[in-house]
């Protein structure tokens, strides 16, 4: 990757953050979403906060990092700024990497706040390296997923929203967020392993609670693998659908 490409990624990231992420509704969504998830899935359940929290953090990372990415390309196409973006000396892949970096940064920043809030209420013997790695890789992976989801769209954000919900919501129920992976049986357990969220939950369980089903290196490796797969598929799909909605 040359200087020109790095400059392009930074410029796209800066543009995305300035235009799409630093909007009050997006920031409020980012911060309130984990809180509502906490109310919806923790209150009234016979589960300790310490046991519940790694799943909540993973879910929050998943939703925040992949929240805006699916919408950027359809927004740009509907506001007619996308063709202008393509006219700059950058490749489609550079634009995608910029979009991914913006989503990743948003995920990391919001979830540092969520982490701080969570740690104020409970005590863990934290594996710091694994925790930081988990947050970074999780954000990277889910931001890549978000950008991948945007690649099938024309200029109608509503289509992406539907597809995004269709993909993202079922994932939280099969990824060990509510039912520990160790407690899953048969088909459900097999299903859990095709979801990248499962590996983040496991990695965060390791880094906060010390116990995990898989070796943390394996979970980190799978998250990197999923990220690369999403990036590759995004690139192919974006190139194929470049003119759709222009």
């Amino acid at each position: 990757m040359n200087t020109r490409a790095i400059r392009g990624i930074i410029t796209v990231t800066e543009k995305d953050i300035r235009i799409y992420y630093t909007k009050a509704p997006v920031l409020i969504f980012g911060l309130l979403f984990p809180f509502f998830m906490f109310i919806a899935f923790y209150m009234g359940r016979k589960i300790s906060f310490q046991e519940f929290y790694p799943g909540l953090l993973a879910m929050s990372l998943f939703f925040t990092a992949s929240s805006v990415g699916p919408l950027i390309t359809p927004w740009e196409k509907s506001f007619r700024t996308y063709e202008r973006l393509l006219s700059f000396p950058v490749t489609v892949f550079t634009i995608l990497l910029g979009d991914i970096a913006a989503g990743m940064l948003f995920g990391v920043i919001v979830n540092v706040v969520v982490l701080g809030a969570g740690l104020a209420f409970t005590h863990y013997s934290i594996q710091y390296f694994a925790l930081i790695l988990g947050i970074i890789l999780g954000s990277f992976c889910f931001s890549s997923l978000g950008v991948f989801l945007s690649s099938f769209s024309g200029r109608a954000p509503s289509n992406v929203m539907m597809m995004s919900s269709l993909v993202r919501f079922p994932m939280i129920f099969i990824s060990g967020v509510f039912i520990p992976l160790q407690g899953m049986q048969g088909f459900l357990k097999s299903l859990a392993f095709i979801s990248p969220l499962t590996y983040l939950v496991d990695l965060l369980n390791y880094s906060l609670r010390g116990g995990s089903l898989l070796h943390p290196v394996a979970s980190a490796g799978v998250l990197v693998g999923f990220s690369l797969l999403f990036m590759y598929c995004s690139h192919l799909a974006h190139k194929k659908n470049l003119l759709k909605g222009l």
Partner: peptide
């Protein structure tokens, strides 16, 4: 390049739009 359907970023000011374009050219 000024595409037919190309538009500027509506949320940015004229100065920010021009500066953003310049950043892409390093």
């Amino acid at each position: 390049i000024i595409p037919e359907m190309g538009n500027i970023y509506q949320d940015l000011t004229p100065m920010q739009n021009i500066v953003l374009a310049g950043k892409f050219y390093g």
